[in-house]
Each structure stands twice: as structure tokens, then as C-alpha cells.
Design a protein around this nucleic acid. Structure first.
Lengths: 350, 350
DNA sequence: AATATATATGCAATCGGTTTCAATTACAAT
DNA sequence: ATTGTAATTGAAACCGATTGCATATATATT
């Protein structure tokens, strides 16, 4: 079992002070070039590695970014994390990740752990249950920046990074209307969360702007799971008259709903056009392929961590609270193309 | 901006020494019960939180587990991580996660970061490219346990946690044979990795045990991506005679292959029966639903972290190198059921 | 020659817990 | 009265890197 080399060992070896060793290894300008050279060679040769804890303890920062996500096993969050990890890595930051599993109590516990681990910054996408940001106040009180992405809530000291859910939903609904749909159902999630509330608004405004009636009974609240998709399909089949278009707030649920409708003898998109949200892999596997909104997960992650780094290394002055909107796009596939022939290209980007 | 409370602040407040505060907060037996009570109340009231860096620095351990996975955006790995995070959390450990993105150089860089972060233990699933474990020697030399799961290589000091890939593949292939297939193609991945090499063996042995010929030309090497599935399908369509069964080493590729074959007019499973591997969500979305091997991801994660914790807290003696095998199961769905009527139950577990 | 300036290095304190080794007290046993 | 034992508490060293302040040397300026 080898022993760790410290700057004291190097100092002894080269007959210098630990101070100089430390400065040399941090490329401090006041150390002679030749000395630096000697030191870094000795360090390499002796197998030195810096002790982050001693360093962190002294510097009062950890070079660590914390992340709290609802779940890791979601294609969208995976993409976000990939983007975050890439940039964080490049900038020399560690990433501590934990999942709230959509519960408030685990989100609170995770926040505490992140706080005790003294992360320098925090990236959060809120759980379904979260209705208070109290557990993040401890960070804000000590000047540790917190950034919310995707599932967000307004907070005067925090930046939010989102897509324009309202606009995306508006586009999707408008597309259904342009395909001739006049009786469109919307399947939504927990309206406490901005993403679902905004999509509902987009759906509503699109209807109104095209002189179609908005009726509460056409909005189905759901858990947006696979199972919930089946239930929603059954509710839809019980409607009279049957709707001719469905806009679902995620792909998992849309796919399961679509399949259940198909099994019941409904022809998609002829009888009903269907649009999902997320552009998950399943949207390209289901038959017919699902029209959906493409979410820039990786990009969202990259933007989030860049903004966070800016705030972490900022002058200490509070950057004014703000919201960053990323572009999303409607990807049109067979599930929503009615009447006309199917499109030449497989995927058409609006 | 609030200031951090230290044990010295509490000591001053209660007119005790920092020693006693530290001991009380760690529930050391030699501190008086009443004193403990007073101290913990004061700590709570003053908003004290332990400084992990000071503690780590002194204790020379970090309460942190490192993880290096090929990618985070894989349903299997997400499930593993979920299992790991659950147990690690319960036991009071932090989790640092990084992805190698299937490249050796990033895996090496990540290993270095983990090492510098002084993780107490390491969980690894190897990248495609990895053909040497040199970058893990530094851990082993210092007595830091390393555990490999799923994508593993033999190392005399490390435990491996896997499923019996050979047996699973044997079962899958045997099932195809029982369904009347006599000319079965196998689509495999990078044979450097145990998982694919073992599955190939299972396929081979099943053929031999059932007196079917094994031919190299029936083994298609592939990247197992969506794109690779299409290519493989084209290769299969060019075969003469056409095979009547396909066993693919993952679901993503199997699904894409299946869809391409269908588009070419092949009836699944009548003309060709198809089996995948992983039980991803897409296997339940594609038409017909895909027969596949269910992988106990979450369980694998839980076992991995438990074994790791044992080794981390062990007496320091080397636990003899070993391999832990977890059970997997064949899930039979429509894509492999030929001739007979479709099964009564949606999913049949063998 | 005297002073100013830049360059290079080191001393010693510091970050906040943990731990070794004593010290103190109370009480029991001889 | 003396010694032994258990229960509490504290002083001080320590983990390893960083940094404010001081010092020493070399070079430039007047």
C-alpha cells in the first residue's frame, strides 16, 4: 500500500519551502520559471497528487457542482446531464448527482446533502410534489447560486432555463388544426409544474386564436406514465362525439395511448391525429411514428452549467434574476398527417 | 450572507472544549448524556453543519463512492444507478458520477479525477475501447476497492458483478429453436467485451447442443445502435437462403432491425422470429412486441454497492477475488412466437 | 552611492474537525 | 488513608494546502 506524497515531501526533496511548492504547482507568477520546472518534474516523478480536502478546506470552495433531478432514467434528463457533465468536466468541476424520484422529501434530503457537501453551485429540476423552495434558501442565503431548469418556479434570486412550452404547445395544436382537427383533446400532467401548465395554455390559446371552443372536459389530467396512457385512451373512447386530435404532454404517455386506441380499432391519424412531447426514442418506434416536440436536452444542460459557472465565479454581486429560453421544434411524422399523402422526407422540421 | 457555525462557536457558547463538541456530535460513548443533549440542542439551534473537508482531511476518507459508466442515457445504466444511489444514500455516502462515452481516453481521465477526489470506492462498467486496467491500478495499490459490473474484465483483486450472459443467450437461442427456427443469425457487439463474447458462446452452444450447424457467416458484428440495426437488416435480406430466426445482443438494435425487415416485407415472426436483449421500453412498443432478456439493473446496482461497502469497511484483508452472478430471465412476446396462436398472457416468464 | 523597484522565497497562521494522551473528579475497594 | 477504577473533559498536535506579511537578492533609477 503506497503512501501519499505531499508538498512537504517535495519541499524536503528539493530543499525549498512548502509555500514555493504550492505556488509553483498553482502556476503562481512570483515563482521562478526554472524553479517551477524543477518542482513540476519532481512532483510528476514522485507521484504527487493534490489533496483536494486540504485545498478545499483552506480555499472554502469545493470545485463541485450538485445536481438534483427527478429521475435519472429519463431520456431527457440523461441528455441534460450529458451536456452538463461535458462542460463541467472541461472546466475542472466534479459533479454530484442525486434523484428526488419525484418526491418532495427526497428532494429536501438531497438538498441537505448537497449543502453539507458544500457544492459551489446547484442545478435543479423540480419534483412533481415540490411546492416550496424553502430547502434551497440555505444556498441562496450563503451566496451559492441555484439554477432551475425545465421544471422551474420563479424565485427572485435564481435563474430559470426552459424552453418556451407555451409556444411549443401552441405550434403543436396549430398543426393539428391545420390538419383539419376541430375537436382536440389535451392530456396533461401535474399542473403545479410550469411545463404542464404552460403547455395547457399554449393548447388553449391556439384553439381560441383559431376560433375553436376550449372545453374543460377536453383536458385530461394524468400521471403521463405508460399506464396513464391506457387509461386516457379509455376515457377518450368513451367520449361522444369522439375527438379527432390528441395532444399529449409527453411521449411515453402518447405512445401508450396511441397503441391502446389502435387496438380499439381507431385509425391513426385518419380517425385521430396524435402529437406527443419530448422526441424520445419510442416516438420513432411506434407505428405510426409519432409527431412530437424536440427538446434540446444536451443544449439545455450546457447552457445551464455555463450560466452557473458565470454566477459562481462572478464578482459576488447578484446577477438580476432572469429566465433563459431555448428553442424547441415541432417534428412532424405520420401520426399527425391526415388526408394528404405521407411526406417525402421522413422527418420534417417546422 | 450568513456565516458558518463551527464547533468552536458551540464550544464558546457552552463553555466546553471543541473536543467535547466533536465527540458529542459523533455520539462518542465517553461524553455525558446530559452534555450530549445540551450540545446537540445548541448545534441545532445555532444552525451548525459539519465541515466535511476538515473531517475528511483528518479522517483520510471521503464518504464518497465514484462511478464510471459508459453512458448515462441508457435505460440499463439508469436502473443500475438508481439502485446504487438508493443504497449509497441510505448508508450516508455521496455519489460522484462520470461517463466514459465508450472511449478509453475519457475513462482514463475520469479515473484520474476519481482518484484525485479520493473516492473511498469505485464502481465501473467498462467502455467499448478499454483493453487494459492500468488506470485502475492506482486505486488497487492504495487499497481502494474497485468493482466492475456488467462490462467487466478479470482482475485478481476485483469483484465482478454480472448476469450469466452465456446462459441467457443459450435460453434465447434454444427458444428460437423450439419455435422451429433452424437457420438463426446472431447480431453481436464488440467481442472485446465479456457481455457480447459470452452471449455469442451461449448462442453457439445452444446450436451445437441441438444439432444445428454453427457458421461464422451467421454472426454479424455491429455497433448495436439504431443505425447498425438497419445495416444488419440489409445484410440479412441479402442472405440466401434467408434465415428464419435472429438473436440480437440488444433491444435498440433488435427493434431497428425488426422494423427494417418489416418494411422490406418480411413477416415477423412468421418468416423470421426475433429476440433482443435488455427489456427496454421500446421492446414493448415495437410491433410485434419483442421477446427479450430481462436484465436486473436496479438489483445489480444494489448488489454492487453492498459488496463495495463491505470491502470498503472490511478489515483491510483482501477479500478473495470473485464473481457474483445475478439471475436474468427470458420474456417471451409476439416477435418470437411462431405457428401457434399468440399467448394468452401478454408476457410469459420462463 | 543611495534609493526605489521588481523578483523570488520563506515563516507562520489558518481552514475546522479528529484523536492521542493526560488530567480531573467521583466513588468504590482495600 | 490509600489505591484502583470508571466516567468526563480538555490541551495540543495533526491532516495538507494556501496566503498575508516579511525578507532577501538583483536590477534599475537618480
Amino acid at each position: 500500500m503506497e503512501k501519499d506524497i505531499t508538498i512537504y515531501d517535495i519541499a524536503r526533496e528539493l530543499e525549498l519551502s512548502p509555500t514555493t511548492i504550492s505556488r509553483a504547482l498553482n502556476d503562481h507568477p512570483s515563482v521562478n520559471k526554472n524553479t517551477k520546472q524543477r518542482i513540476s518534474e519532481a512532483a510528476a516523478q514522485m507521484g504527487y497528487r493534490s489533496n483536494l480536502f486540504a485545498s478545499n478546506l483552506r480555499k472554502q470552495r469545493t470545485n463541485t457542482i450538485g445536481m438534483i433531478v427527478p429521475r435519472l432514467d429519463s431520456p431527457f434528463h440523461s441528455a441534460v446531464i450529458a451536456g452538463i457533465e461535458k462542460i463541467a468536466n472541461e472546466e475542472g468541476y466534479n459533479l454530484i448527482i442525486s434523484q428526488s424520484l419525484e418526491t418532495l422529501h427526497k428532494e429536501v434530503a438531497n438538498a441537505k446533502t448537497m449543502f453539507d457537501s458544500r457544492v459551489d453551485g446547484l442545478l435543479v429540476s423540480l419534483s412533481f410534489e415540490t411546492d416550496s423552495l424553502e430547502h434551497f434558501e440555505q444556498f441562496i442565503n450563503r451566496g451559492i447560486p441555484v439554477i432551475f431548469y425545465d421544471r422551474v418556479t420563479e424565485h427572485k434570486n435564481c435563474t430559470n432555463i426552459i424552453i418556451d412550452n407555451l409556444q411549443a404547445a401552441y405550434k403543436a395544436t396549430t398543426h393539428l388544426i391545420e390538419q383539419g382537427c376541430t375537436n382536440i383533446v389535451h392530456i396533461t400532467g401535474n399542473l403545479k409544474r410550469n411545463v404542464y401548465a404552460d403547455r395547457l395554455k399554449g393548447y388553449k390559446y391556439a384553439l381560441i386564436d383559431h376560433n375553436l371552443p376550449f372545453t374543460e372536459s377536453n383536458v385530461l389530467k394524468s400521471q403521463l406514465t405508460e399506464e396513464a396512457g391506457k387509461l386516457a385512451a379509455e376515457q377518450i373512447l368513451a367520449m361522444n362525439p369522439l375527438p379527432d386530435g390528441i395532444f399529449v404532454s409527453n411521449d411515453t404517455c402518447a405512445v401508450s395511448c396511441l397503441r391502446t386506441l389502435k387496438q380499439a380499432g381507431i385509425s391513426i391519424p385518419r380517425d385521430m391525429a396524435v402529437i406527443g412531447f419530448n422526441n424520445d426514442l419510442t416516438s420513432r418506434v411506434v407505428e405510426p411514428n409519432l409527431t412530437t416536440i424536440n427538446y434540446p436536452g444536451q443544449e439545455m444542460g450546457e447552457v445551464a452549467v455555463r450560466v452557473l459557472l458565470m454566477q459562481m465565479n462572478g464578482t459576488g454581486e447578484k446577477i438580476p434574476s432572469n429566465t433563459i429560453n431555448l428553442r424547441s421544434e415541432l417534428i412532424i411524422r405520420e401520426s399527425s398527417l391526415r388526408g394528404k399523402a405521407s411526406p417525402k422526407k421522413k422527418d420534417i422540421l417546422l
